[in-house]
């Protein structure tokens, strides 16, 4: 699998993040590479995969998160720069 895109979903609350993560991996061929809790109830889930798969996955995940709890943000970075991997936990996605 070529991991050339990063997808991120941030929710307020753990349950919405968990539901979003489940929806994402079920919707497309992507892998979850990180879960970050930055405080204030914010939980971000990061995924890796092809650009199309990541976009489809974040679509499904965002819809689920919005239904279950509070969706804060959704973003996809196609072809992330290698420099990202040195400072952020992107699961090696930016090395490709």
């Amino acid at each position: 699998m070529t991991n050339n895109a990063i997808g991120m979903i941030e929710t307020k609350g753990y349950v919405a993040a968990l539901a979003a993560a489940d929806a994402m991996v079920k919707a497309a061929n992507v892998t979850i590479v990180g879960r970050v809790e930055v405080g204030d109830g914010l939980v971000a889930v990061t995924i890796l995969g092809d650009v199309g798969a990541v976009k489809a996955a974040t679509e499904a995940g965002a819809e689920t998160a919005g239904q279950v709890g509070d969706l804060v943000s959704v973003h996809v970075i196609p072809r992330p720069h290698a420099e990202l991997g040195r400072h952020f936990d992107t699961g090696g996605g930016s090395q490709a």
Binding site: A62, E63, S73
Partner: peptide, 11 residues
């Protein structure tokens, strides 16, 4: 303000 546009929707 509290709704989020997904990347696929933006495309």
């Amino acid at each position: 303000p509290r709704a989020v546009l997904t990347p696929l929707a933006r495309d």
